[in-house]
């Protein structure tokens, strides 16, 4: 009987199809019927028209060929990128954009990490911020315009809510505007958590910089500054995308603050609305807690030396 299978092609094709469908049903079709495959975080919002236009550009340019969008639940990954990805974050992604290769860093927590100006400058010319970066220049996005009727069709296909005003507001927006709007939305449905790992190593209130004035620390701080801070704060801390660090203005208010405030800002980054010494932040800055305590204090020592203190 079994031998007949090998001289009956139609029967053979049917049996082969059944055999390949078993694994398909169990690992692909059955999960699809389960709620665990369709989770949605409560505060996850559908993309706005401009964000969707940006996501379309992200897909068109194949950003997912070099950037992943999923933080794995692994210790060093959580330190580097932020909280690990939750299943409920991706309900509006058709399809998911997790990627499979990190030639560039993961972007699952890129939203709100940098100010918009950083993204504009970086996409226009990545090498201006990271001289040896292999990322292509996307300056042409600044000249290409978003097409409102097309985006309206895309909003409809996704069944995302929008108003006529949302669509007309797209007129005059560049593709760069859209891409930055999208990136700033990525991963923001999960609230930023104070890091559970390195924060303990952070400064205690009113702690003095143990490395203040230390020549070696200042030299190290200078190197670290060039690698991590210069792109936004200028070669000598004179300012650029970010504010000047050479003056005694902090969070837009004149008057110096203590070393541990600097430490905290470098360690935790800045989110708009954050309060430090009674001053309210308006800007965004990424956290650098992955550098660790010694390097952050070295940076503070260097910044102080630039300020002449």
């Amino acid at each position: 009987m079994a031998g007949e299978l090998y001289n009956k092609p139609i029967l053979f094709a049917v049996v082969a199809t059944v055999v390949i469908l078993i694994g398909t049903l169990v690992t692909m079709f059955y999960p699809m019927m389960r709620q665990e495959m369709h989770p949605k975080l409560d505060n996850l919002k559908p993309y706005t028209a401009l964000q969707l236009a940006g996501k379309d550009i992200y897909q068109r340019e194949g950003c997912n060929n070099c950037h992943t969008q999923t933080v794995r639940p692994l210790k060093t990954e959580v330190i580097r990128y932020g909280d690990y990805s939750k299943a409920g974050e991706f309900a509006y992604d058709r399809p998911f954009l997790w990627g499979s290769k990190r030639t560039g860093p993961d972007l699952a927590r890129i939203g709100g990490k940098y100010p918009d100006a950083w993204h504009y400058a970086h996409h226009e010319n990545p090498q201006s911020m990271f001289p040896k970066s292999n990322m292509p220049k996307y300056a042409f996005l600044k000249k290409a315009m978003v097409d409102p009727p097309a985006i309206e069709a895309h909003m409809k296909a996704n069944d995302f809510p929008y108003t006529a005003a949302d669509i007309s507001a797209l007129a005059g927006k560049t593709e760069m505007d859209a891409l930055v709007a999208y990136l700033q939305s990525v991963g923001t449905a999960v609230k930023k958590k104070a890091s559970r790992v390195v924060a303990e190593a952070g400064a205690r209130q009113h702690e003095k910089n143990p490395l203040a004035g230390d020549a070696k620390a200042i030299a190290l701080g200078k190197t670290l500054f060039a690698e991590n801070c210069e792109a936004c704060h200028g070669a000598n801390g004179q300012g650029g995308i970010g504010p000047s660090l050479a003056d005694d203005v902090f969070f837009g208010v004149k008057g110096d603050v203590a070393d541990d405030d600097y430490f905290e800002v470098i360690n935790n980054g800045i989110e708009p609305g954050m309060v430090e010494e009674g001053r309210v932040a308006k800007d965004t800055m990424p956290e650098f807690k992955a550098l660790g305590k010694d390097k952050i204090w070295s940076l503070v020592a260097y910044i102080r030396s630039v300020q002449g203190k």
Binding site: P73, L74, K75, V78, V197
Partner: peptide, 10 residues
């Protein structure tokens, strides 16, 4: 589970 394994490692 992968999430509890992370909590343990932290």
């Amino acid at each position: 589970s992968q999430n509890s394994a992370l909590e343990e490692s932290l």
